[in-house]
Simulated scan of single mutants.
Amino acid sequence: MPGIFTISLDLELYWGVRDSRSFGEYTANLSGEHEAIHGILDLFEAHDIHATWATLGFLFFKDIAELRQHLPGVLPDYHRQKLSSYRYIDERAWGDDDVFHFAPDTIEMIRNRPGQEIGTHTFSHYYCLEEGQTIESFRADLQAAVDVASAKGIPTISLVFPRNQGNPDYLPVLNELGITCYRGNESASFYKPRNKQEQSSLVRALRLLDAYINLSGYNTYSLEECVRSRPFNIPASRFLRPYSRSLAPLESLRLSRIKRAMRDAAAGNRLFHLWWHPHNFGADVKRNLAFLQKILAYYDQLKKRYGMQACNMGEVAAMLERTHAG
């Protein structure tokens, strides 16, 4: 089995940052996101990249009125109510900015491109490790996500936990709803799942440094590791951080860090999993797409030399089922 190059993108629009960023301070990213998605898809098609777009259930609706008709019966009761997207629905004054909250046309555009999988990012950007929520409210939220995708003829096979808050106690719910795989976290201690209050400055600093200097290893995986339990864990290897003007002199280090891990996976017949949010590219679309182009050009070299193949999460899960699952 050759090495595997997997990409997942967390498609969430403003819902994914609304509890941490004001609309005003994130306008540039949101305004450029649609252009970034087009550019990403064009690069994927040019390099024959199959990817998973972990899509928030809310995005399937055309507006707030349609969304309100499909809210689940059990809602999360976070102790920190600001975390709730359901509360946000009721508190904000809805105006003419639906493009930053809903994206049914974008979802259709993505699913019609070759090799692109629509996965789920839960219905509401649900936080599985925050105090106050329960497995019952998680089940209701995820069921709503599966249902809205199913209504569009889209099966839900892959899941990405918002804020990477994977809760092992909740994995049986994925099995109940027919979701066969999820994106787990890197193994280093500073990547372990945490709720918002546990995200210390030290943890964030270590993650930032790890993007440029090898602190946590290559984070590549054998298929035997991924198949140990159901649903299958297809862990993250590297977050593709966006271009930063202040860190621009370190761009070669950032690229080298990714390429070395990709080569480790290709040469060792292992899996490398790159991920990011489309809105990460929005504030500086051209530079971010140019950086992605360098990564994909290197993938082309690894494909030619080692036979590395690009697979979305659903395709990896199907491969695991065929070749490794007992």
Rank of each mutant, 00 (worst) to 15 (best):
S216K: 07
L159P: 03
L215H: 10
L174Y: 10
V146W: 06
Q143W: 04
S201C: 06
N167V: 09
N195V: 02
L171H: 09
A140M: 04
S150F: 10
L174V: 05
R228W: 00
Y170Q: 12
I157S: 15
S189N: 10
P235R: 10
Y182K: 06
Y212E: 03
S150C: 11
S158K: 11
I213D: 07
R228Y: 03
E225A: 14
F232V: 02
S237G: 15
A205K: 14
E136S: 10
P235G: 09
E225M: 09
L208F: 13
L202F: 11
L142G: 03
T156L: 13
V148Q: 05
L240H: 12
L171C: 06
V148P: 09
R194M: 08
F138S: 02
V227H: 07
L209M: 13
S189Q: 10
L202H: 08
A149R: 13
P242D: 07
Y191M: 00
R194A: 12
N175K: 14
Y191I: 01
P242Q: 08
D210G: 03
R230I: 00
R207I: 06
S158M: 10
Q165V: 03
G166Y: 06
A145N: 08
L223I: 07
A140L: 01
R139S: 11
V203R: 15
Y221K: 05
T220Y: 13
F232I: 01
V173K: 04
V160Q: 05
S201G: 11
T220V: 15
N214P: 09
F239N: 06
Q199L: 15
D141V: 02
E224Q: 14
R204L: 14
E136R: 07
E198I: 02
I157N: 15
P193M: 06
N233G: 02
D169Y: 07
L223H: 02
K152V: 00
F232Y: 15
E224Y: 08
A205T: 15
S189Y: 14
P231V: 01
E225T: 12
S137Y: 01
V146C: 11
S229C: 00
V148F: 05
Y221E: 02
F239I: 04
E176H: 09
P155T: 14
Y218R: 12
N185E: 12
N233I: 03
A140W: 00
L177P: 01
R194L: 11
L177M: 01
D210V: 01
V173D: 04
A211F: 02
L202I: 12
L209N: 04
I234L: 08
R139N: 08
Y170M: 12
V148T: 11
E186Y: 04
L215P: 09
L177Q: 01
A149I: 07
S137K: 01
R139M: 04
R241G: 14
C226E: 09
Y170N: 11
I154E: 07
V146F: 08
I157E: 15
V227G: 09
